[in-house]
């Protein structure tokens, strides 16, 4: 695929974990995933991960890259309000 996607397609947040062997080439992987239509927001070299946004269609393409170990949707965590009994 060319990496272009319909403008109105829903973008979601994702974390890309690269393979151990690709950890030292994170910028190269970044270029590859951006070609797939993935917008990289953060590069995490110590972890070998990239976080960013992409439509679901682009994610399948990213996940198929040899240097990519997994692509996982962002989950959210939270702590309860400060006046809650259990934190």
């Amino acid at each position: 695929m060319s990496g272009t996607h319909p403008a109105d397609e829903q973008f979601r947040s994702w974390t890309i974990t690269v393979t151990t062997s690709a950890r030292g080439n994170l910028e190269t992987v970044r270029t590859s995933v951006e070609t797939c239509g993935f917008t990289v927001d953060r590069v995490l070299p110590a972890l070998g991960q990239l976080s960013g946004r992409a439509p679901d269609a682009a994610v399948a393409e990213v996940a198929a890259l040899q240097e990519v170990s997994s692509v996982d949707p962002d989950t959210s965590v939270n702590v309860v309000p400060p006046d809650s009994e259990v934190q």
């Binding site: 995490l44 110590a46 965590v77």
Partner: peptide
């Protein structure tokens, strides 16, 4: 985590990366 107590993977993983660095 923001003042509302919420955060996402990308923020937490960035924090872990920062701590390791």
């Amino acid at each position: 985590l923001g003042a509302d107590g919420s955060g996402s993977d990308s923020q937490i993983l960035a924090g872990i990366n920062w701590a390791l660095e």
